[in-house]
Design a protein around this nucleic acid. Structure first.
Lengths: 166, 166
DNA sequence: TATTGTTATACTCTATAACTATA
DNA sequence: TATAGTTATAGAGTATAACAATA
């Protein structure tokens, strides 16, 4: 076990070694993507709470905003616009129904289709949610130029495309 | 149910409406953070497979690289360097042990400490993992200038700090 | 009492596969 | 057979809280 004590000693002598370049160049970047998203989500939840909005998943709020643009979309069309799978949408729509913001209405013409229709409450809440999202933008992008934000989005898109082999 | 058919008709007449500015400005950006990270992970897994590396979680690979910089770190020190909680580290360390790349060794001096020690296999594999991560960088950042990458990282850091109220 | 580490649990976001109901 | 939607399940990454062992 002497070597283990040796390790412990090295730790003490050199507690903060510089990480190798390959590590600092990849892992923190990789992890930053998640932590930024988490920061967006946490701040949005705090703001929604402050604004007396129902506590929605970020995805549900997005569905709500889609519906406030065009009410009565079918689930499949909503999933397409939100760029998620049908099965992923189910929980978000459940969330909206549970919060009383929208209801499923089965189509009379083709009973396979379900239209999502905003309730009165949903129509009232949607602008507040939209406002919260706008606030988040203002907070998040404070002191960052529009050009830098666009550049970042474009770089991220290129990275994703590079990694997906395109 | 006539209104539902009305919705269906509007869909047909105007199937691809432009989303409102507030939506395009936030949600796709929010979601991009996750999708880029997923792209990194998927590509890394594919490359690790091609290079005959053990299939490790990204986090486990990161722990392995930390150990290849300094062997025998305690779990708490490893968690600190990886910027995760102790409890989150457990699964990653289990992963490394399961793959035979490192072993837990309890310290004789202070039996509360556990040192992670690379095995022979771990020392052989670490450089290959590092190489894979370097390849990923090359793939991900192809045709993107170093300046743009640094700028993106810095912008992301600012966004996170803004959102966290700093 | 304080520290190290583990376990149990939960949460967010997402996907795939198998299923039901309808056309 | 094809489409719309649901359910069941998984997986990645993370956290909190309660716990055991040790100091």
């Amino acid at each position: 076990m002497d070597n283990l004590d040796g390790h412990a000693t090295r730790e003490c002598l050199n507690a903060w070694p510089a990480p190798p370049h390959s590590v600092i160049a990849t892992d923190p970047l990789y992890r930053r993507f998640r932590s930024v998203q988490a920061a967006f989500r946490r701040r949005a939840q705090a703001l929604m709470h402050d604004c007396d909005c129902p506590q929605l998943l970020h995805g549900s709020a997005n569905v709500l905003l889609q519906l406030s643009e065009q009410d009565g979309l079918t689930l499949t069309e909503l999933a397409r616009r939100c760029e998620i799978e049908n099965s992923s949408l189910t929980a978000l729509v459940d969330d909206l129904e549970r919060s009383g913001l929208a209801v499923r209405e089965r189509s009379a013409n083709d009973r396979r289709h379900i239209h999502m229709v905003l309730t009165q409450k949903g129509r009232e809440v949607a602008p507040r949610i939209r406002h919260v999202w706008q606030q988040i933008q203002q907070i998040a992008f404070a002191s960052i130029s529009a050009q830098d934000i666009e550049r970042m989005q474009s770089v991220m898109q290129t990275i994703e495309s590079n990694l997906n082999g395109g």
